[in-house]
Design a protein around this nucleic acid. Structure first.
Length: 422
RNA sequence: GCGACCGUAGCUCAGUUGGUUAGAGCGCUGGUUUGUGGUACCAGAGGUCGGGGGUUCAAGACCCCUCGGUCGCCCCA
């Protein structure tokens, strides 16, 4: 019989286990906790959407829609796309469910997203994000609340060190249009000095020249017209209110006038929390105000602002594996004590104490497998309801803590004799 | 889409200028020893050298293609 080829994981996907999975779960759990502190409701959304949800919101012609989405026709002939982002799907749900009645809405989600891109550090084809949005609030206070929440989240994850909040405004529609026109004129005057990449950006997405990495472009980009000279009074007031709110909340930020968004539906606030610890993928959390998006989807003009952050990237920045609960292995000191050991283990588990039990019957084998499962303590069951407790080296706990915890939950009648942990 | 580097046992890796039956450590299985508990020793299982094609008397080593991985560029909703 011929050997069959072992299947491989799809390129750019990952199987998470052990420490990787623990870090991931810790990010999600922390997000869930913090978002509740700010009154953001959770939601669950489909992973698949009609392709139009994304092509209409992002624009047919953009690279992202034309070559970076997982799009396919289903058996009924409908064009379906695996969601490449959360925002468009949330906007769609807002419209199809008539959530205008709840506006302003504070929403949060997390889950997998799909983009057909070349994998590299912190970038996968199936990746995961946490996401927070406020829909139906035009006030700068909404932007501030979102940013303060993001700041607290990063602090609680312990990764705020080396991360800076970069902030910019794209102004309202008139401001943005005037600035854009000025930029195109300016870059056209300097065409000869621009890199090849930037020449094509000039055609497709001129704002992006501002954050070009090419050293050739830097002097020109740095001397380009700044949005500040084109901001309307209202736009200035809006940005002023956002920065004042951040200052009042004690959130540190720096102005980055080159921080832009390619899509036209973005207005006013744009921001990114950036780190220098992730190589080319430095953005750890990013977002902005997208007052034009819901109209693009055929809905009423609706102000909205939100952010998203890659869970994998956040997980990579976490200091150490997250702590787990004190875990015992209950070991029968002789094969005939196995049933009694099981009884004790079940009692502990019902009391909420994590317990490891080996599938082997030989005591020595049980100890070996318990060590591999990295338990904190070995709880030996001996004849006459005697307990013997040993601390496993490497555990962060102390022997007396183990004894106290075991005694508090073990069945009545047990006597303890502690070991020395060596 | 473009570029660089990489792909040998479950894991981490060694394999000299291509040359006989492909190695180590850890892990796994079994045994001996020890014996209130991370012991030591012995033995064993496990490899299409990512896949395909080519050069050669001879390829894990060289060439081509392909599939993956890593890191950049591009893109970044």
């Amino acid at each position: 019989m011929a050997k069959i080829q072992t299947p491989q994981a799809v390129r750019g996907t990952q199987d998470m286990f052990g420490e990787t999975e623990e870090r991931f779960a810790h990010v999600v759990a922390t997000f869930e906790r913090v978002r509740k502190l700010y009154g953001f409701k959770g939601m669950q959304l489909p992973v698949i959407e009609p392709t139009a949800v994304f092509s209409r919101s992002l624009g047919e012609a953009t690279d992202v829609v034309s070559k970076e989405m997982y799009t396919f026709e289903d058996r009924g002939g409908d064009s379906i796309t695996l969601r490449p982002e959360f925002t468009a799907g949330i906007a769609r749900a807002y419209l199809t469910n008539g959530w205008q009645q709840f506006a302003p809405m504070k929403l949060s989600v997390h889950g997998p997203l799909f983009r057909y891109e070349r994998p590299q550090k912190g970038r996968y084809r199936q990746f995961h994000q946490i996401d927070a949005e406020i829909i139906g609030a035009a006030e700068p206070a909404a932007d501030v609340e979102l940013l303060v929440m993001a700041d607290q989240l990063l602090k609680e994850l312990g990764i705020d060190d080396g991360v800076t909040l970069q902030l910019n405004t794209l102004g309202d529609t008139p401001s943005r249009d005037a600035w854009r026109a000025a930029l195109v004129g300016y870059f056209n005057d300097h065409k000869g000095a621009l890199s090849e990449d930037s020449l094509s950006r000039l055609e497709k997405n001129p704002l992006r020249i501002l954050d070009s990495k090419d050293p050739k472009d830097r002097p020109i980009a740095d001397a380009a017209p700044v949005i500040d000279d084109y901001l309307s009074g209202e736009a200035q007031d809006f940005f002023g209110a956002v920065t004042a709110g951040l200052d009042a909340a004690g959130v540190a930020w720096t102005r980055n006038a080159a921080l832009v968004r390619g899509l036209d539906y973005y207005r006013h606030t744009a921001f990114e929390f950036v780190t220098d610890r992730l190589g080319a993928q430095g953005t750890v959390l990013g977002g902005g105000r997208y007052d034009g998006l819901i109209e693009n989807l055929g809905g009423p003009a609706t102000p909205a602002v939100g952010w998203a952050a890659g869970i994998e990237r956040l997980a990579m920045l976490l200091d150490a594996p997250t702590g787990r609960e004190m875990t015992f292995a209950v070991v029968a000191d002789a094969p005939e004590l196995d049933e009694e050991a099981q009884r004790v283990a079940n009692k502990l588990r019902r009391e909420g104490v994590p317990v490891f039990r080996s599938f082997k019957t030989n005591p020595k084998r049980q100890i070996e497998s318990a060590r591999k499962a990295s338990v904190d303590g070995l709880l030996f069951i001996r004849p006459g309801q005697q307990l013997h407790i040993t601390l496993v080296q490497g555990s962060p706990y102390a022997l007396r803590d183990l004894i106290a915890k075991a005694l508090a939950h073990v069945p009545d009648g047990y006597q303890t004799a502690s070991g020395d942990g060596e």
